[in-house]
Design a protein around this nucleic acid. Structure first.
Length: 863
RNA sequence: GCCCGGGUGGCGGAAUUGGUAGACGCACCGGACUUAAAAUCCGGAGAGGGAAACCUCGUGCCGGUUCGAUUCCGGCUUCGGGCACCA
């Protein structure tokens, strides 16, 4: 053993040994309990960032811990390789996305290996490989056959200069990020997968996901947004198709004073013909972004269309307005407006002087009225003809029945969830396996012709997908014929690839099926670890896809992920400059110098390169687009993988946001160095003398108790609480205690040996390289540390004779008394009353009552 | 705007089921060792008062429940995440 801890020597050596011995390769073994530990695979953006390091360290710690529990542990790794950044790199540097992506994968694979993560690399997959995406093309054709995919128009962000569709991220303040052109809404044909057909199951199955965090389940419930209501048809005064709306509040029907439709609604479009004012309003609305966050903050504006509908019960004429806050993609694109009882309708009515009518009255006597604000709570009906006096439920039923009897309405369950739009007008993605005849009839590809391979050797001209200008790709024939056909140039949303990769990891080499029998052994994933930002979209799509595969006979069980651990963001402040044309350039924190005041707060920042000021932005998730990532490589080079792993686990509990600061890493390095030296000094001296006949001294007994308390705590922290920071703190405390244990007498030596072995085993999942060396140095050469069983608690070592009780007087701590561990309440009480400081506080007061919490405290309540 | 989280010393955080607020670590200060530096070791520290014992205040803000609240409830404030084409 070296006297000094030298990670740069031991880490690569051990990693080479793991690789040579294929230490993390696993196969199915029905005799053993399996554990499938999965982290969300990375997008190969170029280099690992801190979020990756945090994510993959958590996963590796859990995987190695489970392995020491004797389980057959699968921990795979792969690449979510399609996506927008590769196209941006291609446009900027003229590198084909495939080449850029594969180079990034190679580099990042090396970084993961350098961090010592225990992956079964034989299972590595990249979603941009045809061997992977051919199966989702195949699956798509199956879904098509089952009626679960369809084509429909949808609104996209259109850049009129670059002639391309923009992602929401590429729209900055209403303008295209490259061209600066005002973005337009444009309707184009798109592909959808019918997730709404599974909405109910996706919702109800959440109740069975006991291993999922409650907030994530709540977010998914709200996202699916099930509501029960009435679909009501309002006849147009002029005849023609009725205006159909959905409402969850039919009890307010008598309070409807106008109707509102989306700018894309057929009625609005129709009325715009020959009306310049309406046409101009629709044109203005057509400049809105498609992002809901932008849209919801818009000033609510509208215009009367000059048409009326008939109230279905009163026959009263109601004007139809077009309003910028009604979304065509929600429900029918039309809403009935009840300004008396809906705040948004209320504000709109006030703005345009539309009538406001109160038809709901609180059951209680206090009537707040609707003079200043809508009354949105439920109550009793009034001003509602024969329905007056009914409550919500009664009114709902009565109005539903009455409208249904004349065919004007029916009960309906509506979801906020919309069908999944899976087509993208982009190059770097999986081609959608469909061809079109010369009359635009679509025909799905036949299985024999799959995969439809994406051409990788492409040249970029402008910003549009190069597929559009590649007749060798687009020109084809109808499957099974020689009839000419045109190939679809849209590709899949990259969420499509990430919705089933966990199943493919079980059998990545399967070339005759999407997944095979091996998936049955490994699935479901026992713990899935990834960023909280995926709480809804990715995790909902993956659950959906699993159910689709189940219904195709390709998966078992209803849910893919038994437990979910959502790690918090790794955040960092942002730095930027705005240029005249509205563009914003972000600078890396490493390229910026920050001046602080004497309290350590940042007051200004300048770019090191030019010495000129940059603006300090908010603390945000480390990301490529905000350029605020910290490169972990620098830290790995300087301190080694174990220190980086230890620090990221120690800095905060996994579910919490981690605001990165690299100054504290030093402490983790010092700790490992200290443990190393302690072990070195322990092992270079032999035990002295013979064992005493009458057992351990009280001091050594206390150390042994501490050792086993630590084992119990760390086990609980890792396996139940996933609180690695407190697990590490507990080991640090034990090491501090062992450091104070001097001498080499045989009992001392033996207790220290026991303590050091415990520390090494407890730290093994977190700092595997360092632990491996120390384990060997402590004389354990027979077995690999990887498969050494997790230490067990010696419960006899935990027994205490005496304990400390806190004594409070009226809830304030006034002293501590020592009593026997099994002291009765009466004994604890009299000991507490005997305490001098306690007596002082009791003087001149009467004891009202005494609360004794055994083993914890005594609270003496005085008047 | 809507949905979901968070706010505790100079800093990251701890307090697991309502029971000692500040574990562990960083930074800092003082001391030891050293020709010196690095490394290491010992000690200090929430704020205020006091020679000390000890006392008062203190977990974003306001209010409530309780013998007792960082923890539970109501209202606010502020920061972060998501909002369907970033992944």
């Amino acid at each position: 053993m070296d006297e000094r801890y030298n990670p740069s020597a031991i880490e690569p050596q051990l990693q080479a040994r793991w690789q040579a011995a294929q230490s993390f390769a696993v196969r199915e073994d029905p005799a053993r309990e399996k554990f499938y530990c999965l982290c969300m695979f990375p997008y190969p953006s170029g280099r690992l960032h801190m979020g990756h390091v945090r994510n993959y360290t958590i996963g590796d710690v859990i995987a190695r811990y489970q392995r020491m529990q004797g389980k057959n542990v699968l921990q795979p790794m792969g690449w979510d390789a399609f996506g927008l950044p590769a196209e941006n790199a291609a446009i900027e540097n003229n590198i084909p996305p495939a080449r850029w992506t594969r180079a990034n994968i190679d580099y990042m694979r090396g970084q993961l290996q350098r961090l010592g993560f225990g992956y079964d690399w034989a299972r590595e997959l990249a979603t941009c490989d045809p061997t992977y995406y051919r199966w989702e093309q195949w699956f798509f054709t199956q879904l098509y056959a089952r009626g679960l995919v369809y084509r429909k128009t949808a609104v996209v962000n259109w850049d009129p200069i670059d002639q391309t569709v923009l992602a929401n991220e590429q729209v900055i303040e209403g303008r295209g990020w490259r061209s600066g052109a005002l973005v337009e809404r444009r309707e184009i044909p798109q592909w959808f997968v019918r997730i709404t057909a599974y909405a109910d199951e996706l919702l109800t199955d959440l109740d069975r996901l006991e291993g999922w965090p409650e907030p994530v389940k709540t977010m998914q419930r709200n996202w699916i947004g099930r509501s029960e209501g009435l679909s009501i048809r309002f006849e147009l005064e002029s005849g023609g198709d009725a205006l159909e709306v959905f409402t969850t509040r039919p009890d307010t029907l008598f309070g409807v004073t106008y109707m509102a439709v989306a700018p894309e609604h057929p009625i609005a479009k129709q009325m715009a013909e020959g009306n310049d004012e309406i046409a101009a309003f629709l044109a203005a609305c057509a400049q809105m972004s498609t992002a809901e966050s932008v849209f919801e903050k818009l000033e609510k504006l509208g215009l009367p269309l000059g048409v009326n509908v008939l109230h279905p019960l009163t026959g009263q004429l109601l004007p139809v307005w077009v309003a910028n806050f009604v979304l065509m993609s929600y429900g029918t694109g039309a809403v009935m407006s009840v300004p008396g009882h809906d705040q948004r309708d209320y504000e709109f009515a006030k703005l345009y002087g539309l009538p406001i009518k109160q038809v709901i009255f609180p059951a209680a006597d206090a009537d707040p009225g609707i003079a200043n604000v809508a009354l949105t709570e439920k109550g009793l009906l009034g001003n509602s003809a024969e329905f007056d006096g009914l409550d919500f439920k009664q009114a709902f039923d009565a109005i539903a029945e009455k409208l249904a009897s004349t065919g004007r309405a029916e009960r309906r369950v509506q979801y906020r969830l919309r069908d999944w739009l899976v087509s993208r007008q982009r190059y770097w993605g999986c081609p959608i396996p469909v061809v079109y005849t010369d009359t635009d009839t679509l025909v799905p590809e036949s299985p024999e012709r799959l995969p439809v391979v994406l051409p990788e050797d492409v040249a970029w001209q402008g910003v549009a997908s190069p597929l559009l200008g590649m007749p060798e790709f687009t020109t084809t024939t109808l499957p099974g014929t020689t009839t000419p056909a045109r190939r679809e140039t849209d590709t899949f949303d990259t969420f499509f690839e990430s919705s089933w990769y966990f199943a493919r990891f079980c059998c990545p080499d399967s070339d005759s099926a999407m997944v095979d029998y091996r998936a049955k052994y490994w699935m479901p994933v026992d713990i899935y670890i990834g960023g909280i930002e995926h709480a809804v979209l990715h995790l909902l799509y993956a659950r959906f896809f699993h159910k689709l595969m189940r219904d195709a006979g390709l998966a078992h069980g209803d849910e893919p992920f038994t437990r979910l651990l959502t790690q918090g963001m790794v955040c960092k402040e942002t730095y930027f400059r705005d240029t005249e044309n509205g563009k914003r350039t972000y600078f890396s924190p490493t390229a910026v110098e920050v001046a602080t005041d004497d309290k350590g707060r940042a007051i200004s920042a300048q770019l090191t390169a030019d010495g000129k000021a940059v603006q300090i932005g908010p603390v945000e998730k480390m990301s490529k687009s905000k350029n605020n990532g910290i490169d972990p490589q620098t830290l790995i080079d300087r301190y080694g993988a174990d220190t980086v792993r230890l620090y990221t686990m120690f800095a905060a509990p996994p579910e919490q946001t981690l605001e990165w600061s690299d100054s504290a890493v030093e402490g983790s390095y010092r700790f490992l160095r200290g443990l190393w030296r302690l072990t070195f000094e322990h092992t270079r001296k032999a035990a002295i003398g013979a064992a005493a006949a009458n057992g351990l001294s009280p001091e050594l007994k206390a150390v042994r108790r501490r050792i086993h308390e630590t084992i119990a705590k760390v086990t609980d922290d890792i396996s139940r609480r996933y609180k690695f920071n407190t697990a590490i703190a507990a080991v640090m405390e034990l090491v501090n205690a062992l450091q104070r244990l001097n001498g080499h007498e045989v009992e001392t030596h033996r207790v220290r040996q026991e303590g050091l072995e415990a520390c090494v085993l407890l730290l093994a999942p977190i700092v595997p390289h360092c632990a491996d060396s120390l384990w060997e140095a402590l004389g354990n050469t027979a077995n690999s540390l990887l498969d050494t069983p997790w230490p067990k608690v010696d419960t006899t070592a935990l027994i205490r004779d005496e304990i400390e009780l806190v004594v409070q007087v009226s809830g304030k701590k006034r002293g501590i008394v020592v009593v026997a561990a099994d002291a009765a309440a009466a004994v604890a009480e009299s000991a507490a009353l005997a305490d001098l400081n306690v007596q002082r506080h009791l003087q001149g007061h009467t004891v009202r009552k005494v609360v004794v919490i055994p083993g914890r405290l005594v609270n003496i309540v005085i008047d």
